[in-house]
Write a protein that binds this DNA or RNA. Sequence first.
DNA 1: TGTCTATGTTGACACATGTCGAACCAGAGG
DNA 2: CCTCTGGTTCGACATGTGTCAACATAGACA
Lengths: 117, 117
Amino acid sequence: MRTLPLLEPVVQPCCPPLTERPLTAEEAERTAVMFKALGDPVRLRLFSAVVSHEGGEACVCDISDVGVSQPTVSHHLKKLKEAGLLSSERRGTWVYYRVEPAVLAAMGQLLTKAAAA
Amino acid sequence: MRTLPLLEPVVQPCCPPLTERPLTAEEAERTAVMFKALGDPVRLRLFSAVVSHEGGEACVCDISDVGVSQPTVSHHLKKLKEAGLLSSERRGTWVYYRVEPAVLAAMGQLLTKAAAA
DNA sequence: TGTCTATGTTGACACATGTCGAACCAGAGG
DNA sequence: CCTCTGGTTCGACATGTGTCAACATAGACA
């Protein structure tokens, strides 16, 4: 019995820099997944809530006050997970979501390098 | 006769840091606009093409080879413009798109600060 | 076993979005 | 004036997406 299904890893070595050259179709496809995941207000709030929470992780019950129903929260968290931005773990009664620091750093570099050009 | 319609400024002083605290509904709404704009593979390629082009600007004719019809290219460039990421200017026969460096830098900080947490 | 609480999944629905062809607009150059 | 070329706008269509209520599942606890 595995405790972490972890749907897909999707984007790990990700993110070619944006300024160097035009992205290829493949690269764009991969990179767009992450931006798309953050392209919804509710998901952005959930993500921000997890990232800003102490320890970089939070229980669903702590962050689900974003004005939508509980199934919708669950749906959005799943999307963020599929995009490789969050991972989840069940601890007893509650499920905790955690941010993937590597991916976040990669996204940041992608944009800051672009800005420095 | 104005040469720059510039549909809306939308997001100028933008981007509260992502790690500090959970984003409010308003902040998330504003910030998500930009991520959403970059959340499509075609738009990401177009954006990357403009950013990586010399001088940070490019004629539509230089970047429209992304596998979709020309009206679709125009549609996506409009979206990027509405999101405040690009601006456009007509110069004789051709239309040039340019990146907005301030907004790009803000987005980068938003994520790198988040990564450093 | 049963029940209660915390999350996830399903199904359905309305709405947003990406795409194209066709029509339209703006300059350049006859 | 006309015509050609580069871009945009329009109308239509298929697909994707956010949302909820209802149902299902997983532990905790009795």
